[in-house]
Nucleic acid binder design. Structure first.
Length: 457
RNA sequence: GGCGGUGUAGCCAAGUGGUAAGGCGCCGGUCUGCAAAACCGUUAUACCCCGGUUCGAAUCCGGGCACCGCCUCCA
């Protein structure tokens, strides 16, 4: 059996055998949110994917050091603060706390470190000084830019030549820049903006530099894994590499892991379309495990289409599975290779949780469950970060309660009463007519020993 | 235009050389006054198209086509 862990490295666009820098230890840095609005399902996916990766790395015996930052100094936050007439720090703090609450509510493990830009200004200034001293940065009118033409590897992550990047750019020409692709390391700030003193005047860090600085601070100049959403490959991660490698002369991150983005009902989730789904709103309707399992039944690199229909499907599956697990009789035993070995191997191959869940569903469906089988199932659930879901997911359509309350309760009760009277005297024609009436209201009647209940159709 | 990704049943989704996991749905059966739930069973001669390599390809190579993402600070 092959015990190696294989990871798709966005830097080489290949699956590679994972080799850690220090035996038994893994350092991982993931780009967290810019805190200027409530976090959405894209953030959720990223948090869930990297939570899975951390859990699995721990499971196979690695000691992990997991760092996820907050970008709390940024143009977007400043703009939002101006729009709402609230202090920049308050906006940043509000959304930072919200994010922490959201990922906690999703049942994700906390990173070991969650640094903020505002708390690392000195480190950032020192790094910018080093970049200037190495000849890669230049100062113009109180601002510092990175000179990409000096860094010969520029474009190695996104696989682009600087020429081709320029050929189709929407970039506005900035006369202060030596090259159009140069980016700001330090920006001078307008009156009222958050600002710090620096050798170049009052200002604040540009986007990108914080991640170079903070990853190095916690993990060293070279570390094992750098993660984030696919959309960050260019320019953000490309620029991080340029900033870090020009001063260290070392490779920045050995493996780059990028999770796929999400669509909502087949459309790109975006502000302009107005279809952003917040984590908070999703959690009001769906149990966290449904959301997690939805994401985990897709491979982390593929784009995913999110819709309530798909979440309902997951819920249905889970309710069935839950009943299977509690029913130890009545299940036919079939041949299946070692479940534990199968799912671990799936996960060793670029964290293929979708495949692993296939085995999980199959195993539960085809096993007479014994104590040891349950132990195996629970081991899987713990590693995937869904342990306890069976106590949290009910088949009482509770997730649709808010929807159901909009129905005319009185009228439904009247139909049920009338129909049951008809059923007692075996007037089936009338009973069926009343069932149809209920269906026209969009609900379905369910007869049980304990009476008649109903649910949304 | 450049770079990257994707294309597998009605829908979703695994599968990197050995003859198509899993889920939802559909259909049939048991059960039920009828339904629902549950349970049992069925459901891709076939993996966008055309060539090639191979004893053998969804999987590798070449050429197309289609869709999606990124291409600088939120557009």
């Amino acid at each position: 059996m092959n015990h190696e862990l294989r990871i798709y490295n966005s830097l080489t666009n290949k699956k590679e055998i994972f080799k850690e820098l220090i035996p038994g230890k893994v350092g991982i840095y993931v780009c967290g949110p810019t805190v200027y609005s409530s976090s959405h399902m894209g953030h959720a996916r990223s948090a869930i994917v990297f939570d899975l990766i951390i859990r699995f790395l721990k499971f196979v015996g690695y000691q992990t050091k997991y760092v996820r930052n907050f970008t709390d100094v940024d143009d977007k936050i400043i703009a939002k603060a101006a729009e709402e007439g609230i202090a920049v720090e308050k906006i940043a703090n509000k959304y930072k706390l919200e994010y922490l609450e959201d990922v906690k509510n999703l049942g994700c493990l906390s990173p070991d470190f969650q640094p903020c830009v505002s708390e690392n200004i000195n480190e950032i200034i020192e790094l910018i000084k080093k970049i200037i001293a190495s000849g890669y940065g230049y100062v113009v009118a109180g601002e510092v830019y990175y000179n990409i033409s000096k860094f010969s590897d520029y474009g190695k992550l996104s696989n682009q030549s600087t020429d081709s990047m320029l050929s189709h750019t929407r970039l506005e020409i900035n006369p202060n820049k030596k090259n159009d692709l140069d980016f700001a390391l330090w920006k001078s700030s307008k009156e009222g903006d958050p600002s710090w003193n620096s050798p170049w005047g009052k200002g604040r860090p540009g986007w990108h530099i914080e991640c170079s600085s903070m990853s190095t601070k916690y993990l060293g100049e070279t570390f094992d894994i750098h993660g984030g959403g696919r959309d960050l490959i260019f320019p953000h991660h490309e620029n991080e590499i340029a900033q870090s490698e020009c001063t260290s002369n070392e490779k920045f991150a050995n493996y780059w892991i990028h999770n796929g983005l999400i669509n909502i009902n087949k459309e790109k989730m975006s502000k302009s379309i107005g279809n952003i789904v917040n984590i908070q709103d999703a959690l009001k309707i769906w149990n966290k495990n449904i959301i997690k399992i939805f994401f985990l039944t897709h491979h982390y690199r593929t784009p995913v289409d999110l819709s309530s229909e798909k979440l309902k499907e997951i819920k249905k599956t889970l309710i069935k599975i839950k009943k299977k697990i509690s029913d130890t009789k009545n299940i036919r035993e079939r041949k299946m290779d070692d479940f534990r070995k199968l799912w671990i191997n799936a996960m060793r191959d670029d964290f293929n949780s979708a495949k692993a869940f296939g085995y999980y569903f199959k195993y539960i469906n085809e096993r007479a469950l014994t104590k040891s089988n349950i132990d195996l199932i629970e081991e899987f659930e713990i590693t995937m970060g869904i342990f306890g879901w069976r106590n949290e997911i009910n088949d009482d359509t509770s997730s649709e309660e808010s929807f159901e309350q909009k129905f005319d309760q009185e009228r439904i009760q009247k139909i049920i009463l009338e129909r049951n009277m008809a059923r007692q005297i075996k007037n089936w024609k009338k009973a069926d007519d009343l069932r149809l009436q209920a269906e026209e209201l969009g609900i379905e009647l369910i007869d049980t020993k304990n009476g008649t209940s109903w649910k949304r159709k």
